[in-house]
Design a protein around this nucleic acid. Structure first.
Lengths: 154, 154
DNA sequence: TATTGTTATACTCTATAACTATA
DNA sequence: TATAGTTATAGAGTATAACAATA
């Protein structure tokens, strides 16, 4: 409440950092945390996490995909994908069959129940994106997506 | 290599999802992972992680800040902040003193060694941001920062 | 009663190395 | 030799509940 004094405690209720506020990496990290938290809220009761949602989306759009390719598409290492795929299998959302031409590989397919769950999740994701992007116009949303992909492909 | 056939394995080397590619949340998450990985590379040998960097920045710019306020500024819960502050203390980058007017609280101050480390980290962060933003012009960089903060605050 | 810092705990994500079976 | 999937393990981030000391 008073003017700051050197070596006195700056223990107000709020603190800022001009350095951090100028860094895009920091803004990316903090914004992602906020958006992912809203995603998780939006999925309440579905047992859906961001990583499971993205796996279901890729599997449905790429029927028969194997785990290595799935992991590469999503930036997940093979070893870390194993328990995640097992989770989808044991929840009967995805079917896993031996690959017809490569005995080492599995082929993953979305089944009916997985499709229903994904559809419900997609409906919730639409509302979630509308909520977190409420402050942006259509042009700004397209611009943000373009800029993010530019950085990522960079 | 051939045209896709229903229920045949789509086990090519690459897979995409139009659904995910349209979601800003997904773009945020993937882009942040790429940028954070480059940050970590940039800090090689410094023992610096994103969270420690942000803590040092806030402590230097808010001398005497207590742990609760520091955590609130960075979105870190008090309980999770304890081992992180201990790490900075044991590495002699930050000093912790009892708060003069509140016996429950600590007041955190950056010391000389912490300042030197933070300065070196800032120099590396500048090169890191230049690297990950190389594909964007100045106007685009400002725009991205503005849009990210709009989403986060919105 | 409320707040600061702490401890304990559990879950998720991530990273690495080594193994098996198949190619 | 190389690749697909697996196992084991360790580190880091995150979330909750409960406690002691102090306000």
């Amino acid at each position: 409440m008073n003017e700051p004094v050197a070596l006195e405690a700056a223990d107000g209720l709020e603190a800022r950092s001009e350095l951090l506020e100028g860094l895009i990496g920091y803004a990316l990290r903090r914004t992602t945390i906020v958006v992912m938290a809203d995603f998780i809220d939006a999925m309440e009761g579905l047992g859906m996490r961001p990583v499971l949602f993205s796996m279901l989306a890729v599997i449905r759009e790429n029927p028969g995909i194997n785990q290595t390719t799935l992991g590469r598409a999503l930036g997940i290492q093979r070893a870390n994908l194993v328990p995640l795929v097992n989770e989808l299998i044991s929840r009967r959302l995805v079917d896993r069959r031996r690959h017809p031409k490569d005995g080492r590989a599995f082929a993953l397919f979305m089944n009916g129940e997985g499709g229903l769950l994904l559809d419900e999740a997609i409906a919730r994701v639409s509302r979630h994106e509308e909520r977190v992007l409420a402050g942006l116009g259509d042009a700004e949303r397209r611009q943000l997506l373009t800029l993010l992909n530019k950085v990522r492909s960079g």
